[in-house]
Design a protein around this nucleic acid. Sequence first.
DNA 1: TCAAAACATTGACCTAGAGCAAGAACCAGA
DNA 2: TCTGGTTCTTGCTCTAGGTCAATGTTTTGA
Lengths: 195, 195
Amino acid sequence: MTDLMNSYQILFSYFQQLSGIAAEEFDAFKDKFVLQFAKRKEFILQEGRVCQSNYFILKGSFRMYQINELGQEMIRYFALENKFGTNLTSLIEESPSQEFIQAIEPTTYFKISRVDFFNLVETSPHVNKAYRNILENAYITSQKRIYKLQGMTALDRLKWLNAHYPGILARIPSKMIASYLGITPFTLSRLKSEL
Amino acid sequence: MTDLMNSYQILFSYFQQLSGIAAEEFDAFKDKFVLQFAKRKEFILQEGRVCQSNYFILKGSFRMYQINELGQEMIRYFALENKFGTNLTSLIEESPSQEFIQAIEPTTYFKISRVDFFNLVETSPHVNKAYRNILENAYITSQKRIYKLQGMTALDRLKWLNAHYPGILARIPSKMIASYLGITPFTLSRLKSEL
DNA sequence: TCAAAACATTGACCTAGAGCAAGAACCAGA
DNA sequence: TCTGGTTCTTGCTCTAGGTCAATGTTTTGA
């Protein structure tokens, strides 16, 4: 099936860039990655459940978010095309997730189970290297986020987001952007006119 | 030298717990870790320089912080005893650090160069595993921090810090705690009476 | 041991951004 | 293509936490 072949090609390119893996090695494990589809607003992971898989977005987007004591959604991350995304904390610790993962748009993605994934990390030096890279980047991204969110005004944070993820304001609903930035949709609406 | 031996013992325990490494393997590379001392307020890393080493605290503490456009210090992390601490972003990317690392108290620590460290990560599966664990925890900690800092009131953040790092309020100067929590020392002073 | 400097507290203000209500514009799906 | 429900905007008001100034309290290093 051409579509699946093509999707594997995209995943292969991803691994190859991060680790220089050879096609033969990739072919040997690629079937651990299962192609999946999610409708708009479909939940991939519910709060309270242990995250069982790692996901690689082919087309569409996921959002990772929590709901706090006051019932407000707090978005931590938008997983866009060509990115792995999961609740790493839950996946690593096998602890109940405090996050939801939800498709924002109709989304095509690969899914690999925790067991298979960490097996690959342990047995394939190339996957190990790619995982290390994913972790390192996840960490770096989250550090940047801490520094950007703290100490900047809401307007500056918005400008930063816009510069860093061009086009995201057009693609993702404003209320989700607001949640990601830690401001209310009201404030965001007012700030957009100042951009 | 007893002191050095003892310090290696502590580092060995650390690695052993995370990876189950054997004493022989540890002994083969332990001399890559060099014992160092820093005076109170001594800088370990200056902003703008590429971070060259990873550090393991034996006694004392480091703080990692940035200075923003308005000249305010923003503390990201307190490295206490028995923890690795460095500017991972700069160390990994070999990019100029945007952070300072400074000893808060007189501090005894191990230092290992980037080259030696990543060599060990590549060649020793046990160190690789320990590094993975460090990265995973760094990531998890920073995720928690994002969720705690956003959406909680300043008082709740303070309570969280106090519960999570018992005794830190007595040990670390208030103005640093305030900076870590993203509030002013004035606000912290007022909040402490509400604890 | 003690002076100078750094740190902490408190009071009186001020402001960025929240909350809420009401209405307008925009979809998604049937 | 229409329609009912989301989403977005805008005005008004309110509050958590910031700023600044004045004063008291620790630290520390010579």
